[in-house]
């Protein structure tokens, strides 16, 4: 932390992070992306534009996609935060992770955690989305490598697999 806020602005906030209750001492003005990456070391959540334009920092809060660069950590108090690190279970990739791997939905990989979290939010709400629904759900996630076709195919593939 490069700042030293007054103690009145620093509080212990408790929330669920990838299934575990965590307490974190954090300033009110700290963003979730900073807390995830710098306090918890969960660097899977990427910092792209820092302005809500690229989707690289997409996480799920209470199961819905949110941008960690626009969300203050204090907003997460009492809520359920999930990051890309929470998807693999017992060393096995989730169906979306596997589909992105097998369908070549990843090139440089920088957008991938955000893409997968946005797609995860979609599949929980709509287990069998059509291509239009997938495009709409990923509309806020920029990829500068693939041209998106492989990404959409990967999400379609994941939807075909039972969870």
């Amino acid at each position: 932390m490069q700042r030293d806020p007054p103690s009145s602005q620093v509080k212990i906030r408790r929330f669920r992070l990838n299934g575990r209750m965590r307490d974190v001492l954090v300033a009110d003005s700290t963003l979730l992306v900073e807390t995830l990456r710098e306090t918890f070391g969960l660097t899977g959540t990427k910092q792209g534009c820092d302005g809500g334009e690229c989707g690289a920092c997409t996480v799920l809060i209470d199961g819905k996609p949110r941008l960690a660069c626009l969300t203050r950590t204090e907003e997460c108090e009492g809520r359920d935060v999930e990051t890309i690190e929470g998807l693999a279970k017992n060393g096995r990739m989730s169906r979306l992770q596997r589909a992105f791997h097998e369908r070549l939905g990843t090139q440089c990989g920088y957008c991938t955690p955000g893409m997968i979290m946005a797609a995860e939010g979609l599949l929980r709400r709509n287990p069998m989305p059509d291509a239009a629904a997938i495009r709409a759900a990923l509309a806020g996630n920029l990829c500068r490598c693939t041209g998106y076709v492989k990404i959409i195919e990967a999400v379609e593939e994941a939807a075909r697999q039972a969870p």
Partner: peptide, 9 residues
């Protein structure tokens, strides 16, 4: 407005 993640907030 924005994208799905913006509209949730």
């Amino acid at each position: 407005v924005g994208a799905p993640a913006h509209r949730e907030a």
